[in-house]
Design a protein around this nucleic acid. Sequence first.
DNA 1: TGGTATTTGTCCGTATGTATC
DNA 2: GGATACATACGGACAAATACC
Lengths: 234, 234
Amino acid sequence: MIPKYKLIYQDIKENIQSGKYPQNEFLPSENELTKTYHCSRNTLRNALSILATEGVIQPIHGKGVRVIFPPEVEHPNFIYHGIGQFDEALEEDEVALKKFVNVFSELYINEEISKLTTFPINTPIYYVERVRYMDEKPVILHRSYFRQDIAVGLTKRISEASIYNYLKEELKQTIGVTKRTIFVEKATKLDSDLLELEEYDCVVVVVNRTYNGEGIMFEFTESRHNPAYFVYSD
Amino acid sequence: MIPKYKLIYQDIKENIQSGKYPQNEFLPSENELTKTYHCSRNTLRNALSILATEGVIQPIHGKGVRVIFPPEVEHPNFIYHGIGQFDEALEEDEVALKKFVNVFSELYINEEISKLTTFPINTPIYYVERVRYMDEKPVILHRSYFRQDIAVGLTKRISEASIYNYLKEELKQTIGVTKRTIFVEKATKLDSDLLELEEYDCVVVVVNRTYNGEGIMFEFTESRHNPAYFVYSD
DNA sequence: TGGTATTTGTCCGTATGTATC
DNA sequence: GGATACATACGGACAAATACC
């Protein structure tokens, strides 16, 4: 049962994307919208608040609610957009995507890795190292640490398919927040080899910490990107 | 008059930061909190929803609301954190910050710049080019385009102080959403010279589009960062 | 200048649904 | 099943900003 406010949210969003509610124009007033959706003002405002935090609309006190969904910007080097839930996000796309699992191992967190990941020392971990390919070119090197007590039964085979699908479908885990940090590092020899870096001598490092639906951090991933194919939007 | 839900939001956040509500523990139940704050459940949930979208807490249906405020992560190359409202964010800090205005000019948007900024052709613009220094080293080259009809009366002198202070204090403009895109480009000769790039042959480009409180995009800024000093957290 | 209607912002109380223990 | 806790939804009231006459 999808709640009413989510349906309203989706409908308004589609109407914005389709152009029924154009850029820089105002939406119909909240009073009108409650009539068209046969709902209370609270429910409608619940839907609107999601769009507002997404940055799709901007309510202006006493005036109305303006649409500020911006046109997508093109980049000369645009290829990869969106980070983190790479699997789900792009599985549908028609791009030639592949991944290759270099390393799959089980280990216990030692002091050094604890410092990096903030997992407590001696936590049992699945360590997965994967390379992402796009159009036959390696673009990202992922180094992931999953808590064994949450990603129970993870295998190399599953890592080659979709870890997130496994977590959600098999383990019924819900995925919560992801916290992200981005910076640049000089490329190591390993980076250069695995990512076939040519024009760049550095990599973009994206660190993701993912929490499950219970607020437990269960994944730490360091993704090393070929700068030529890196684009991030918030 | 600060609304009640914001006071509650601030109070809970402070209690989390002070450790009164510890990491990975649950907050008191919504019912209890409504009693301590003498408010309705709606008002309290309004406050909680802000904390949830900030990623500070995570509500779990039927169980409680968990604190997931994570410890700040250190970077070996950590210096600069936070982008965009650089002025306000760091003016208080004790770091040796300076900026130097290279170019200040008035111009009309032409076809090429319109493509870049999405401002309509012939829009009157203030163009500002600034270099950011930190501890005497140049770290960021900013190229900003401000709509003249919104940033009325902007001058070179103001740009050397704080443009945002001017917008807010003098022009009584309210600042709305900022949309951001990050990617990497090969450094130009100009980048290398102005930013004194040494170990890197590239720059991190952060594109900011800033909207005012009315939902009008009035600023487009392309910030070219020295990768050695670039760290971004979301 | 001022008053009125419109529109969003804040706040309350209540009822019911659903997940967890 | 019952108690607790969060999620959804309704309706009403008043405040504050804006627009318009």
